[in-house]
Design a protein around this nucleic acid. Sequence first.
DNA 1: AATTCTAACTTAACGGTGTTAACTGAGCGC
DNA 2: GCGCTCAGTTAACACCGTTAAGTTAGAATT
Lengths: 224, 224
Amino acid sequence: MGVQERRERERDQTRARIMDAARELFARHGYDAVSMRKIAEAIEYSPTAIYVHFQDKEALFRELCRADFGRLAGVFNELARVKDPVERIGRIGHDYIRFALEFPNHYRLMFMTPLAPPPDATAMEHKGNPDEDAYAILKLAVTEAIAQKRFRPEYRNAELATQVLWATAHGVASLQITKGNDQWVDWRPIEDRSSAALGAILRGMLADPPTLPKPHKARKAGAK
Amino acid sequence: MGVQERRERERDQTRARIMDAARELFARHGYDAVSMRKIAEAIEYSPTAIYVHFQDKEALFRELCRADFGRLAGVFNELARVKDPVERIGRIGHDYIRFALEFPNHYRLMFMTPLAPPPDATAMEHKGNPDEDAYAILKLAVTEAIAQKRFRPEYRNAELATQVLWATAHGVASLQITKGNDQWVDWRPIEDRSSAALGAILRGMLADPPTLPKPHKARKAGAK
DNA sequence: AATTCTAACTTAACGGTGTTAACTGAGCGC
DNA sequence: GCGCTCAGTTAACACCGTTAAGTTAGAATT
């Protein structure tokens, strides 16, 4: 019986080696620039060996995404200690954008690459579990804020409010990733754009926004 | 002398035929799914004929984008008659998102596809011309609003405010395009997300926002 | 009118891609 | 020892973007 388990372990190991190599290559060069042959070369297998473990290139990529979503959720979970839900929302937004800019190719794979109507039921079972589902974490904070009547009446649908906040952060992050080096626009520093966008969207949704410019956490003298 | 002109005219015609076919195919199937061979087939030329007129696939694509940016600017220019700059900003946002969802593949090419440090000087000379530069149109409205002191003090940098507004609209549009069919999220209707996001971001930036939920203009007999 | 020249376009090919079908070969159960 | 299972291989297919070398219609030159 131990034999079967050992075989399974070996299989999982190979699978993990493929995923590690693929993750590294995808994150460095982007989806299209990485070929199955190059992934195979990195682990010194033949290209077709990958097909023993993954149905095709897209399935491999999708598997990586699933794992990375968990990582993002991990970042967010460190913010659970922030008691005030509104402040937590702001922090989540900043960390989200930071994650996107720190791993732009990861981010591109996760949120800027269209994957056909993906969902096999197996992936779905993790939905809503805050340990793995970053969306659920944000939604939880929003729900708390709504419960405290911190949002204006027209933004008291938690799902809608969550999606608006997500869209705002995604807009800042993705525009920076695709157009951040474009000379056409005279870009302001990305930190300014993040703070301004998150500050404005929150202020716009809050029932009684602070009258002073948001006490932004860089409390040290002048921001650059 | 007339001969040379006729030749040039013929050349331009062929060039236009290539662009028309490519635009149609790209818009329908996306960049990667369309091959030079298929474009050539559509106009009944050999694949290499395209290389007589365009340096490579990316140059062809970039040329199409340039033209489509002008189209977007055209949509925005129809809003010039809206006198109140704040209202105009809101309308621009809605039309921007509508444009994105009506031509999602166009939009993807224009704003969601990274093109290396593109800019030959020739493209740059059109920058800032409101007839062709959609960004400049939005920035103009923002500048007017700032001049009227309609924005809170911390949002009176026109460039920054423009970029925040753009990011918000882009976030709603691009998230819908890439994730709109994703079952993981229980999406609210896209119209609701658009209105809520644009309403909130504007409210958050305005010096004295209206106290009632924004009197949203449901335009004539709904878009689908 | 015959020749040369130009330039739009074609044919053939190169090296790459994702993916499949058929094969190999080691290690297990019998 | 025999056969089976199955991870991994080799070879091939049809496609891709792109280039080098032709072809050829028709204007320009003689």
